[in-house]
Nucleic acid binder design. Structure first.
Lengths: 215, 215, 215, 215
DNA sequence: GATGAATGAGCGTTCATTCAT
DNA sequence: TATGAATGAACGCTCATTCAT
């Protein structure tokens, strides 16, 4: 399990008074609500009102924690990136390119799957909104991190010697599109999707084993 | 040169009077403004009033031409798809998979380049907006067409036998990301980008010729 | 048959050229459309656009004939009053008060019934709008005329000697309310309604014959 | 004195803080403004923005209290009906028809007079709008109540045996028209107007005492 | 005179944000 | 600090009216 969503322990690791406890809880309530709203409506359609409505807090309280929709979005994204950072760090160090690619893809896909599952699980059973978009700010942020890592690795010459910018772009494109498809299948098969994506990145369509079929 | 953006001549081949001319001009002004706004803000963030403001027309005038943001967006997208249709049609017929992929990518990249150039050219020199997203509705529509074509071809078993949904997704991801990068380089080198993308799709990073470098 | 709706003959009784013919027709088209619209939507909800839409004429053409919704409403009302004038005139002359009241009520009810029937008849069969209001400007104008006549007669001392303003108000109130109910029954029974209203005006509830029942 | 219009004391019997006071004041300001606007322009012509403008509040504030023109109208009408309910209740019980009619008319006229006086009084001296229609939602609601009562009584056979629908209509017509005239006289003489209306309903013009004259 | 597109004020409503409590 | 009503800019859209054709 790579990522776990924000919890009180993440933020309040020091002895705290009643007041701070409330502050932390409010902050978490806002973040949770925001994640849901962004995931359901998408960034543009989401409004601050949507978020505060879901927290049960007063409108003004939101602004004690974040100054705008942008800021709470960034906070979520940062959280995703922060949780992903250790995994990513280890990736940047090895010098086996194939292994690096595989590790990066696996890490990214696992993160996505975890996020997606925990996000879906949090929704009440009978309450299936029709307009779920499915990408949380965390996923977007982690994607950006993976993208940077791949670009760095390729630019640093750890991969084949070709147009490094295009190479990174291609790898990223594969990761994003195959990752999205992966989330739409049941069960979510991270390993299979990662195998596919890595094979595709390294060897293209022609290098794929002919037996692969959707599970 | 595959597509050329809408011009007065396309629509008003029989200009009879001033009234008709103004109508055509206004329609084009709205379409141009809408393309810009969608390109800069994205579909969700764009508002009808943004479009109106950029035309300099009165608010009510917009509604003489289109009933909503959706409708003007659809008009732009349809135009892109319409101009792209003939090229696409020829693509779907051959049965050489490699050739098909190459043709599809080349067609898509050429369309993007044309659109991008004409879009950029239409902007006044000193007026470089900072928030340009760069994807017009036309590009989005054409991308969707190419995506369908690739998915169809792969699902029809014209490519290697593997997980066809993932295969299509991977090819699409490469096309989109490499295409976007291509537009950011000067000069815009369609052939080189297409070579890269096709090589990547078919043979992956490892199959790339080692000499490719950004021009 | 007391009233007949406006016809070409009413307005254009002189030899006329083609152009005048058109002008008359347009004017009538506008008046007819306006009557329908006012009858269906009521004065407030009706818009100039509703009227011109129904004529098939251009928007600007309306303003060659009337300057506003108010003006075309007034024209319809005037027409009603004009057609009703002769009947009313004869009423004002006799000196038998009971007879005057009966004649006034009968004339008013007959006018209403005619208008209502011809207005209903003009609507296409399958096209029963749900929001019909049922009072045309003509009816309103004729009602105002009858009101004046009754007020004049009572103020002139032709009726019982009491508070003449209240007397007229009471008579008017009866005429309006009973008249409206009359229009809602099928068949529309003018004579019976008039009998009732006259009896009520002259002798009150206690003077009514006990056998009267809705037909 | 039957009704008295809404006052702070009615609603805020336990004023706790400034917030609550302001809320009550705003609600009343909106209701007062709405009553004026409806009285002057009529329900159809009145707009939410007319009401807002007259309160001096911001546009959005209206929607903190009422969701629409319909809702604020209903609030006013409900208030009228609510204040009138006890009087009406007692009316429905007796079985002396003449007494019932008198009581109903008196109650209605007294309510109208109170409303009218308090409404006029609330207007600044120099500010006599020309377009006053004079019927507030409260009056309309109470009129509707009286109408129901009379229709019920007559339909129940408590009056003379004749066409009960027409009978009720006639009585209602008298009440409305005579009541309106009453409001235009100074001083407003409720008893005299009621005497007149009752006499008229029961015995018609011919049964009126000959000495009645406007005071 | 007829046309019908252009105009811009105005409508109902929502929203991010502020600030007195 | 939390509250939640007040604010007013902005939105999508309609309308009466004008005026070049």
């Amino acid at each position: 399990m790579i990522g776990c969503s924000i919890s009180v322990a993440d933020v309040a690791y020091l002895p705290i008074g009643k007041r701070e406890q409330t502050k932390v809880q409010n902050r978490l309530a806002i973040l949770d609500a925001a994640r849901e709203v962004f995931g359901e409506l998408g960034y543009e359609a989401a409004t601050v009102r949507d978020i505060i409505r879901r927290t049960g807090l007063a409108a003004g309280t939101f602004y004690n924690y974040y100054r705008s929709k942008e800021e709470v979005f960034a906070a979520l994204a940062d959280d995703g990136a922060r949780r992903f950072a250790p995994i990513l760090k280890s990736l940047r160090q090895g010098d086996d390119f194939d292994g690096f690619v595989r590790a990066a893809i696996v890490a990214y896909f696992e993160f996505m799957a975890d996020e997606h599952i925990s996000w879906m699980a949090r929704r009440p059973a009978g309450e299936q909104q029709p307009h779920v978009q499915g990408e949380t700010p965390e996923m977007a942020a982690v994607f950006a991190e993976v993208k940077d890592a791949i670009e760095d690795a390729i630019a640093a010459g750890r991969g084949p010697a070709s147009d490094s910018e295009y190479m990174a772009a291609a790898a990223i494109g594969i990761a994003r599109e195959v990752g999205d498809k992966m989330l739409m299948r049941r069960p979510i098969a991270v390993a299979a999707a990662a195998d596919f994506a890595v094979g595709m990145i390294l060897n293209g369509l022609k290098g794929l084993p002919s037996g692969m079929r959707p599970s």
